[in-house]
Measured scan of single mutants.
Amino acid sequence: QTQEFDNEEEARKAEKELRKENRRVTVTQENGRWRVTWD
C-alpha cells in the first residue's frame, strides 16, 4: 500500500505508526513529494 505526503514530517509520522504495527515500511522522496509504502 502507498500513501503520499507533502512533507517529510507527515511521512515520518505515518512511518512511525506503521512500524508500531510491525509492518515493513519504505519512505521515498520523489518530485518533492514523500511516499510511504508498506506491506
Score class of each variant (00 low, 15 high):
G32M: 05
E8Y: 09
D39E: 15
K13H: 13
R35T: 14
D6F: 07
N22I: 05
N22Y: 15
E21T: 14
V25F: 03
T37W: 14
W34H: 01
L18D: 02
E21Y: 11
D6E: 12
R24S: 07
K16Y: 14
K13F: 12
V27Y: 01
E15G: 04
E8F: 04
E4A: 04
Q3C: 15
R35M: 14
L18H: 11
E9R: 07
V25Y: 04
D6T: 05
V36R: 00
V36K: 00
R33V: 14
V27R: 02
E15L: 04
R12S: 03
V36N: 00
V36D: 00
F5R: 00
E30T: 10
R23A: 15
F5V: 02
N22Q: 09
Q3K: 14
N31Y: 04
Q29G: 08
Q1E: 12
T26R: 08
K20G: 14
L18V: 02
E30G: 02
D39F: 15
A14P: 00
Q29R: 10
F5N: 01
K16V: 13
K16T: 09
R35Q: 11
E10N: 03
E10V: 02
R19M: 09
T26P: 01
R19W: 13
E8D: 01
T28H: 04
N31S: 08
E17V: 08
R35F: 15
G32F: 03
E9Q: 08
V36T: 01
Q29C: 10
R24G: 03
E4R: 03
E10D: 14
A14K: 15
N7D: 11
A11M: 03
E9W: 14
W38E: 04
E21V: 10
F5S: 00
R12L: 10
W38M: 05
N7V: 06
R12H: 06
W34E: 00
T26H: 11
A14N: 04
E17Y: 07
W38R: 02
D6Y: 06
R33K: 15
E10K: 06
D39K: 04
G32T: 05
V36E: 01
N7M: 05
K16N: 10
K13G: 06
D6W: 08
D6A: 08
E30M: 10
W38H: 05
E4I: 15
K13S: 09
K16G: 07
E10W: 02
V25T: 03
R23G: 12
E9N: 08
E17N: 12
T37Q: 12
N22T: 06
E30V: 14
G32K: 04
T28S: 10
E21N: 13
V36H: 01
E15N: 01
V27M: 07
V36S: 00
T37I: 10
E17H: 10
N7R: 05
N31L: 05
E30F: 09
N7I: 04
Q29P: 08
Q3A: 14
R35P: 00
K20S: 08
T2C: 08
K16W: 08
Q1K: 11
E9Y: 11
F5Q: 00
E8T: 01
E17Q: 13
A11C: 12
W34M: 00
A14Q: 11
E10T: 05
K20H: 11
T28I: 11
N7P: 00
K20E: 08
K20Y: 08
V25A: 04
F5W: 05
N7F: 09
T37V: 09
F5L: 01
V25D: 00
E10A: 11
T37K: 09
E17A: 13
T37P: 01
L18A: 10
E21Q: 11
N31H: 06
R23I: 14
T2E: 11
V25L: 03
R12G: 02
R19N: 11
K20W: 07
E17S: 06
R23Q: 14
R12W: 07
E30N: 07
F5H: 02
T28V: 12
Q3L: 14
E15P: 01
R35N: 06
T28N: 07
E10R: 04
V25G: 04
R12F: 07
E21F: 13
D39I: 13
L18K: 07
A11N: 00
E9P: 11
R35V: 15
T26M: 09
Q3R: 13
R23T: 13
E8S: 03
A14S: 06
E15V: 11
N31E: 10
K20V: 07
A14E: 03
W34D: 01
R35S: 09
V36Y: 00
E10I: 04
L18Q: 04
A14T: 05
E30A: 08
R12T: 04
V36I: 04
Q1P: 07
K20N: 12
V27A: 02
R12Q: 06
F5Y: 13
E4K: 03
G32Q: 02
E21D: 13
E4V: 15
T28A: 08
V36L: 06
E9S: 08
K20A: 12
D6M: 10
T2N: 08
E21G: 08
R23E: 12
A11E: 00
W34V: 01
T2D: 06
A11P: 00
E30K: 10
W38Y: 06
G32W: 02
E17K: 13
E10P: 00
N31A: 06
F5E: 00
T37D: 06
E9G: 11
W38V: 10
E4P: 02
T26I: 14
E21W: 09
T26V: 14
